[in-house]
Design a protein around this nucleic acid. Structure first.
Lengths: 251, 251
DNA sequence: CGTGTTATTGATAGATTTCAATCAATGTGG
DNA sequence: CCACATTGATTGAAATCTATCAATAACACG
């Protein structure tokens, strides 16, 4: 619950290279994918590349929502605060994540980099222009927003009705499914290595628990041989299906 | 937690009157508002009016998402279930609410009428056609989806970090703000009459609590002269500001 | 190596749930 | 019209899960 990140200046790599979008590794995973290759220079012209160091907040809840963002590298945590400092992490934004959808003149959440993060920044006006030029982009954003809503509803179910054990299991499964891009992973009960760029405190605030409960529950999973914990940033899923059953409340 | 609503046939008032949209009282509150009056016949041609009786489920979680809905009268509850019957109400859909945004080939939630509900039903294909004909509609849907996301994040904060007391207070304030359409309401601490079409069980499942806790907390509010409870379906907000402070955790 | 941060583990406390009983409102049928 | 059943809401007592408080351990880093 100790955030306290002072506003440090962001590093802006404003090299308006017209090829940045063409060579962007995140393109296949983000909304930009719907823009035709030939038009990528227009997209690049509207975007500004920004680097954010770990721990730095690049979106502040309540600030006027002047920009939209597309994460191209790294992971950020999105969160809301209560006046007394209680925190709810509403999600983790990784590569390809489009930020700013939840907009109503001012940001409804804050965003802080967990790892070195690279983002493409669009001004409100520039994005509006892009949406007018590329109707497919608007359709894509609606699709993305709809999916976000499904995820949000799933999280409400988790926060409102699942036990600590079920919450942690759900979290691990969701994290394991985050990287479906490696083809070699098919069999049942194949060990999966889950990378966790966030602290236990972030996980706790995401799952509506305390860090102690997170720690205890993970220790119990380990004692039950469901997982291994090689280090704080990594968890190996030994029994995917068993954990999945816990996640869905089937145990 | 006792749902058990058998699938009864819906009443379809399929009077494809080309004026239904023109005379629709919900128009000002719904996405249809962006459609030009002259084009309302096209909208009407794509929609089917459906009446749903209280207690009847008209969207079933997991079913193929063939239709989109627009609520024109009444209130429905939206919810998700865990295999063992635990339920999370993700929202209440009143007049003007657009249903189906959270779409991914199959419905992510169920919807059940609390009062007699009237809805406009669109097939997937028909809506796609409308979106192509009226780009403004797509923009509107994106706006609606974005607002839904803001609401969902607020609910995550509630479910993950607020106390029972704060949850009930938040719920009452949100319900009170639902009807901002009556101009005579301006002063501070003016008694507001809140209509609750849902049961205590629905409220509990919405707030991640039990009906006993809901009942106890409301009773305490009454003992503190913050509210009055004339009957099960109505609550009078005696001290709006005090309740609002509780809702935001300022007490 | 200290040193500070982060995570783990233990003991206790507390808020909410669970179990249980009562009450109120509504409807039914003899 | 009045027992009787049914459903929803309230209230009480006990149990439980998770939070809180506290101490230790593991780790990263200068």
């Amino acid at each position: 619950m100790t955030a306290m990140t002072r506003a440090r200046p962001l590093v802006i790599d404003s090299h308006r290279d017209s090829n940045v979008c063409l060579t962007c590794g995140a393109r296949a995973f983000s909304v930009c994918h719907v823009i035709d290759t030939a038009d990528l220079d227009k997209l690049a012209a509207a975007a500004v590349s920004v680097s954010v160091q770990p721990g730095h907040t690049f979106i502040q809840e309540g600030d006027p929502a002047e920009h939209f963002f597309n994460v191209t590298a790294g992971t950020a945590k999105l969160y809301k605060l209560l006046p007394d400092g209680r925190r709810q992490v509403t999600g983790f934004a990784g590569m390809g994540y489009f930020l700013g959808l939840a907009v109503s003149s001012s940001y409804a959440f804050s965003a802080e980099a967990l790892e070195p993060v690279k983002i493409c920044r669009f001004s409100r006006a520039k994005l509006r222009g892009l949406l007018d030029d590329f109707p497919a982009l608007e359709k894509k954003l609606l699709e993305v927003a709809s999916n976000e809503l499904v995820v949000a509803q799933e999280q409400m179910l988790l926060l409102g009705r699942k036990t600590a054990r079920e919450r942690l299991a759900s979290f691990l499964i969701a994290r394991a499914n985050l990287v479906p891009h490696c083809p070699g992973r098919g069999g049942v009960n194949v060990a999966e290595r889950i990378h966790l760029p966030m602290t236990r405190s972030d996980i706790a605030d995401y799952l509506g628990l305390t860090i102690e409960t997170v720690s205890r529950t993970l220790s119990k999973f380990r004692a039950e041989k469901l997982i291994e914990i090689p280090n704080n940033a990594e968890i190996v899923l030994l029994k995917h299906d068993a954990v999945e059953d816990i996640a869905t409340g089937m145990v």
